[in-house]
Write a protein that binds this DNA or RNA. Structure first.
Lengths: 222, 222
DNA sequence: CCTTATTTTGTACGAATGTTCAATCTAAAA
DNA sequence: TTTTAGATTGAACATTCGTACAAAATAAGG
């Protein structure tokens, strides 16, 4: 994805290897702190401390607090969006698509990254929840999330040409919100009697839930 | 619901009618400001200004900022929980329950209140989203939300005795998260092509979605 | 080696925050 | 009417916040 929303300032030299390392260290620290406290309660000072650098260095690499949040979200969103589109393309070659296949192409790549990529991707899930819930991040969502989501909605719409797109868009948003709930409100499920099981099993269950929901909705509205 | 988590200080006189009025004015103002900016970005000063009173008066009636948030959430949660339980009881007299009937008893009372009760209930939806997403409100959710949710989960579990409760709890959380998404991320749905329609129609669609999802999940896991 | 762009440090500023407290006003109770 | 608990005001406190800036350290390019 082209990141034209915040270009780097003009450089005369390429950033040094060490600079790139600290830059990544700062983004990781910001990701953890933002996920832990939310945007407003997170402080630049805690981010700096978590990264082991000075406060001004965070500003130097990340820009303002708001710009820093953009960079943190966009970094993972770009990687994940690419993986989702790739999964969809690969699946297309293996025959005609179904609703469950499309949802697997959307949920699957995140599962793989979360299982192998450590705490960063779980923190990212909390950031997605924040961005989706707060109208303040409208533009961020429009840049980072909407294009890929639009792609998947259209893919489902192709399966049901006589169903109005709005019904599909709504049920897709419900599905994504359920995914975010799975990743961010595990404590609430446990409080209601859901003991821990493997993340992969939960994903299978979720895909069953969403596929049935989407199918029932489009059939009712067509 | 018994509100033992923060009792009033001992009084020698009953609060005057005017005091009760300003108290309610403050809770309403806090509700709006919390919903608008989130807990951390909301300021006691903006709440005071919105209520047309001094800052110290907000503290006097609401306690600390955190206590004030509890009071704001608990006020609506108690009323809504009562309505949901009443709806379930009333429905039981009209014959055997189904999944869709149970979900209607959960979603319906909110719809009625939102359609007649003005902006307060829409603000409350945003507060529920915050509480559900942030582990900081674990105790608040346990007191205000979990008992009623537990009741509905058990009601569904009674329909499928051979299904493990955790599958039902998970799909119920997915359903509630979809309801919250419907109420708080309308802008995201519109960005994906969902034009505005009546709230009641959206609720019908959502119940279709959730009923199908729950039914498919419990049948797969039994 | 020397120059210079970049990275990193340390510090400081002004603004905004939640909370507290004494003083004043209101109205219920005696 | 007198008394007094409670409601309301206004101002102040200490703290934390995001940001800016100059100086020092680093490393790349000539």
């Amino acid at each position: 994805m082209q990141q034209d929303f915040l270009q780097e300032k003009q450089r005369q030299r390429a950033p040094s290897a060490r600079a790139l390392a600290t830059r990544s260290k700062i983004l990781n620290a910001a990701e953890q702190v933002f996920a832990r406290h939310g945007f407003d309660a997170a402080s630049m000072r805690e981010i700096a401390q978590e990264a082991g650098v000075q406060v001004a260095l965070v500003t130097h690499h990340g820009g303002s607090k708001e710009e820093l949040f953009w960079r943190v979200v966009a970094r993972r969103a770009d990687e994940l969006s690419q993986a989702r589109v790739d999964a969809l393309e690969a699946r297309r070659f293996r025959g005609p698509l179904s609703v469950s296949a499309i949802m697997e192409c959307h949920f699957g790549p995140y599962l793989e990254k979360a299982e192998t990529g450590g705490a960063g991707w779980f923190a990212y899930a909390r950031l997605v929840a924040m961005v989706s819930a707060d109208t303040r991040w409208r533009d961020l969502a429009a840049v980072c999330f909407d294009p890929t989501a639009q792609l998947f909605v259209e893919e489902i719409a192709r399966l049901y040409p006589e169903t109005p797109p709005r019904a599909i868009a709504a049920s897709f948003v419900y599905s994504v919100s359920a995914l975010i709930a799975l990743l961010t409100t595990e404590w609430r499920m446990q409080a209601l009697g859901d003991e821990r099981e493997s993340l992969a099993d939960r994903f299978d269950e979720l895909i069953t839930f969403c596929t049935a929901g989407i199918t029932a909705t489009v059939q009712q509205d067509s």
